[in-house]
């Protein structure tokens, strides 16, 4: 039972990370039906910028926690600018183009960002500064760390904040209007370009926070860290119903838990014919099954498909 609880804790933490990254995919998709494949790279850039700044600030004598907070804010700013630049240069000119064109340009941006990071931060895995000391607590037989609790709390806070923004503010109303019908929204006085740009900026800032979380949790940052994470988060978004914010959260947590339980129990259930390396296979099997029965994801797409 202890092991089971521990696996649940592992899964929920992993899922919370997926969920936060998935939010970025789902927001952008929800508003312009674009899969922003460069989102994973924004997470990486966020982690890298924070890595450099935390190192710089602590060497200047700034104590641990304020250094992390300050570095995170700066990373959010850098990523927000990057997100805006990305939208302006790579996506906006292609808005009227066939759907595949911006998708390819997103993949291009992703490759460019990855290699830019390679040039700046080298190919070596960097040790993410552990300024906040990891403490382990016992919770019903399972070990939970303060970092895990922090990740969960920040994730919930971010998801809640985003939900509030989208469903309770004027900007959110404009976002939802643009998402339903950009022409109609524009006729009614919504500046669609501005709304889309703001969506990218918010998504990118969230990615930066996710980057810092991932970096501090695993203690490592590398220029390739964004792609695998981005892919999983994208799947989480699809699982929950892409374009749907609560769906991204549900999808992320579910994917994390399925992965952890998969790694923990596949071996026992199949008498070690399949080992823990099949955890991804197991996770994607669940994804396929869900999509076969609910093609629009668990919480579905509330907005009708316009394509």
């Amino acid at each position: 039972m202890d092991i089971f609880i521990q696996q649940l804790v592992n899964g929920i933490t992993l899922g919370a990370v997926y969920a936060v990254v998935a939010l970025g995919y789902t927001m952008v998709y929800g508003i312009i039906q674009l899969i922003n494949f460069a989102h994973g790279e924004l997470v990486m850039i966020g982690a890298m910028v924070a890595f450099t700044l935390i190192g710089l600030l602590t060497s200047l004598g700034v104590p641990g926690l304020p250094a992390v907070v300050l570095a995170t804010l700066c990373a959010m700013l850098v990523c927000a600018l990057l997100g805006y630049a990305m939208e302006r240069m790579a996506y906006r000119p292609l808005r009227g183009a066939p759907r595949l064109a911006p998708l390819i340009s997103a993949i291009g941006v992703s490759i460019i960002l990855q290699h830019l990071a390679l040039l700046v931060w080298s190919r070596n895995p960097l040790a993410f500064p552990q300024v906040v000391k990891t403490e382990s607590y016992a919770l019903g037989g399972a070990a939970v760390t303060n970092i895990q609790i922090g990740i969960l709390a920040i994730s919930i806070f971010m998801m809640g904040g985003l939900a509030w923004l989208v469903y309770r503010t004027r900007l959110g109303t404009a976002m939802r209007a643009t998402s339903q019908n950009p022409q109609m929204a524009a006729l009614l006085g919504v500046d669609a370009n501005r709304v889309i740009a703001v969506t990218f900026i918010i998504g990118a800032a969230l990615a930066a926070v996710a980057g810092v979380m991932v970096g501090s949790y695993y203690g490592i940052a590398q220029y390739t860290m964004g792609s695998a994470l981005g892919l999983k988060a994208f799947c989480a978004a699809v699982l929950g119903g892409i374009g749907n914010i609560p769906g991204a959260m549900l999808g992320g947590i579910l994917l994390g838990v399925v992965e952890a339980l998969g790694a923990g129990y596949i071996g026992d259930l199949t008498d070690n014919v399949f080992g823990s390396n099949y955890q991804d296979v197991f996770a994607f099997l669940v994804l396929i099954v869900v999509l076969v029965f609910r093609p629009s994801g668990l919480l579905g797409e509330r907005i009708g498909d316009r394509a």
Partner: peptide, 10 residues
């Protein structure tokens, strides 16, 4: 892989 917790827990 960055997350080994599931394997390690097992």
């Amino acid at each position: 892989r960055a997350d080994w917790k599931a394997v390690l827990t097992k």
